[in-house]
Design a protein around this nucleic acid. Structure first.
Lengths: 355, 355
DNA sequence: TTGTATGCGTTATCAT
DNA sequence: ATGATAACGCATACAA
């Protein structure tokens, strides 16, 4: 009973290794390895014997062991850190990145930082411990310099949506400023001069750029924005709801149109306008598309980011850097697009009305 | 220049190992390993020396090597196969699973099968090659028996959203039938007798159950559904659009209310009703919530799945099985909830109208 | 064309 | 309490 040759399978059946396959096929392990890695110098007959043996024991290569031994230590996986995977922007981005990665037989590890710098670091640490070949990061907080160490050890980093802080690296970013500028001009073209803006925390790069786009447009239009027309630091829909309610309850000087800095803010603002009975009165342009935007009445005019392009460009950027390190860091800008659907084309009320 | 003591770093700086840490701390590698794994029998003084050395070289454990050597081969990761990560149901589910996994220091690998059985198998294969400790699968196609092999090798499987076919295993499933039954009864309670149903392919378990719920309610109401009131095999929003358009253009016998079998169908149906000018005339209840459902007019009444509970229960189920294998397989049912918002409470038009 | 021996970074065994 | 050494499953160098 010592060498248990024909023992009943009591143990959970250790997964078969190339040794098992080799023994079964009556070849050396190196031949199995060659078949596994599509290396040359294997007689078709041998190859078939090996493949058959693999199938019969349902062999599955242990890619852990493989990458430990590999000279380049490659794991064929990359890590992606988003803010919140439950957010449509993040999940669509993840899907695109996965598709592009899978095309190169790469797997994607995903983590949600919730915009908390500490969590971002933890997730990155976990990824690096798994020896991902590269990192895609939507950065949170004020300092990504910790990533320099990972990079020097051979793990390239590409930032998405906004550049990392205190570090120079590749980044793929939407043209936030231009987008909001165009949205504002669009509203002006439809007759508005009293245009408001509701935005996120200015510490977030994208929010800062978007407000800059608004200001640029207003300056160009000689429409000095009233202080009551701009609210920032709105971190969620309910904050936006309160801010919008306040903004449009200003009897004297409420704006006739508003640009919303992101989709949470758009949702909060729409709820506020709904409650005030102003849905069909105040013109609205939102940043980022929403699923049912075209079923709303009026349908929602938005500036959409090209998530497909963002995902593709950032994956490409990462894989390119994996293939040839030592290139110059690049900042890729992805155009945004204004989609008029109705809410952004509402004209201002006739002069003198509103009290 | 042979042993390059102070060589300029030309190479991409191999990641430090426990050997490097041990040398720097002046201890054996086993001591480092002990610190790393919180094993007993390390003098606090030693531990501090090791921790300091780790910090100074920014050591990151290589969990690949770790799990290769481990007796249990554990990788502290699980695999999750969804249909499409870009779909809100999938991404919210993923988020919940990740949170519960991360609490146990587990990582989640995600893949999108697009409902294609072949892709599901590929992804599972990739996950198994990465030696995930367990699998969560939203099954596609007609046969998950291939997963039996993985399970026998010690990788437990839990199905989500619908049970796997040709295999007995744990499953966490919403009460689809009850949900649609309640939705139908809800419409009946508001005066409707001519209630339609638009559903997905009957080969999909959830779709089959949902239609069964509709039929059960109709039978109970003695409201034999007209053949023109039920359309299935609708795989996307545009198919639903066409089906709904056809259904409500039946001059004589169009239903006055409709239940939509999933959110894509709901979107298609709403577009169709919009085009026909029937948005405020036909009562609608959708299965699965939509982001802006409450901003629509009328706001959308839905049956929502408890994604939080589904994710939590399935993760728990998997981890429980990891800790003690050999338990009986269980099928967990998660209740759904009817959320009345307006569209499901529209009364039928007065009798005799409609031509 | 094929196989043997060595090593990857870690955990496990066992001696000290 | 600590460390030398074997072993994990695989890739690599090199011999046959």
């Amino acid at each position: 009973m010592v060498n248990d040759p024909g023992a009943v399978d009591a143990t959970p059946a250790r997964a078969p290794t190339i040794k098992d396959v080799a023994a079964r096929a009556g070849v050396g392990i190196k031949t199995v390895s060659r078949v596994l890695n599509d290396e040359p110098n294997v007689r078709p007959e041998m190859r078939d014997r090996v493949l058959e043996a693999m199938a019969s024991v349902e062999y599955r290569r242990n890619s852990m062991a493989s990458s430990v031994r590999r000279r380049d230590q490659r794991t064929a996986s990359i890590g992606l850190v988003v803010e919140d995977l439950a957010n449509p922007f993040a999940s669509q981005l993840t899907r695109v990145v996965q598709d592009h990665a899978l095309r190169r037989r790469y797997l994607v590890l995903v983590g949600s930082s919730d915009g908390v710098a500490e969590r971002e670091r933890e997730i990155v640490g976990e990824f690096c411990s798994r020896r991902v070949d590269g990192l895609l990061v939507v950065p949170s907080g004020t300092d990504q310099s910790y990533l320099a160490a990972e990079r020097e050890r051979g793990t390239p980093v590409v930032f998405i949506d906004r550049p990392g802080k205190k570090i120079t690296a590749d980044a793929v970013v939407s043209e936030n400023e231009i987008g909001v500028q165009q949205a504002t001009e669009h509203l002006a073209r439809h007759g508005h001069t009293r245009i408001g803006y509701l935005g996120d925390r200015q510490s977030v790069h994208t929010a800062e750029r978007r407000l800059a786009g608004y200001r640029a447009a207003m300056t160009e239009l000689d429409a000095e924005p009233d202080t009551g027309w701009v609210r920032t630091e709105l971190t969620d829909a309910s904050a936006a709801y309160r801010a919008a309610t306040g903004m449009f309850q200003q009897d004297d000087a409420a704006p006739t149109a508003v640009v919303c800095g992101n989709n949470l803010i758009t949702v909060g603002t729409l709820h506020a306008l709904q409650a005030l009975g102003l849905r069909e009165t105040v013109a609205v342009v939102g940043f980022d598309d929403l699923d049912l935007a075209d079923l709303l009445r009026p349908a929602l005019t938005v500036i959409t980011q090209d998530i497909e392009a963002i995902g593709e460009r950032s994956a490409d950027q990462l894989f390119t850097r994996l293939d040839n390190p030592g290139e110059e860091y690049a900042r890729v800008s992805v155009p945004v697009r204004l989609v008029p659907r109705g809410s952004g084309e509402i004209p201002p009320p006739p002069h003198g009305e509103g009290e």
